[in-house]
Nucleic acid binder design. Structure first.
Lengths: 106, 106
DNA sequence: TATATTTGCAACCGAATGGTTGCTTAAATC
DNA sequence: GATTTAAGCAACCATTCGGTTGCAAATATA
């Protein structure tokens, strides 16, 4: 049972859940209302998100509010960093080329 | 057969392949040498990466070089954008709080 | 031309995934 | 105290996934 953040965001429903509770913490029932799947289906997704610490629970009476740990998302950002350097370099090279072409004009 | 970039980066081997060919285009054989899996295993991953346009092929004789389309990675960056706003806001709020606490000192 | 090399494709297999239904537990309400 | 509501847990099921082996096609080399 692999359980990392990249596997967590692989599923489109899970991404939608993440976006939903990013705004404000919600209960499983409230979340399920936004989707076609059953409450249990949503609960399964929430368990996966909880296991990789993307989401935390907060009990309030018999309701459990699920909250996004937005800081965890930075892990993706961190992984992207290596490629960001590359795509910016590529862009710079293109930019340099364009400048060169411009300067050649009489 | 879902095939989007988020599913593509879900697998750790695929992430490693992406990082590998980000530096320079490589053939399946050359890539496979870096991993425990067979060449066919790597080829399967490359097919998935190609299907979601993260990678393009370039034939050179009987060899096929696989190249990362680093621009495609921006899609992840774009998705992250919405959360980046949130985590920066949260940080600002924390920052404001800290400043307030500091100013309360006599 | 015969042989070796590089690759893709198809079939197969065990494990994981996403979803369902049914049940239990615990809190709120009557 | 009985009933309703919110939620977790377990079992099940079809599909997908990651990996393998075997084979065919195409290019390079002897």
């Amino acid at each position: 049972m692999r359980r990392d953040i990249f596997q967590a965001i692989a599923d489109p429903t899970r991404r939608a859940i993440i976006a939903l509770i990013a705004v404000q913490a919600m209960t499983p029932n409230a979340i399920a209302e936004h989707f076609d799947t059953s409450r249990q289906g949503v609960s399964k997704h929430l368990r996966i998100l909880t296991e990789c610490e993307l989401v935390t629970q907060q009990q309030e009476g018999r309701e459990i509010y699920y909250q996004l740990q937005v800081n965890k998302m930075k892990e993706i950002d961190k992984w992207l960093e290596q490629f960001r350097k590359i795509w910016e370099k590529r862009f710079d090279q293109l930019d340099t080329l364009l400048v060169k072409l411009k300067n050649k004009k009489p």
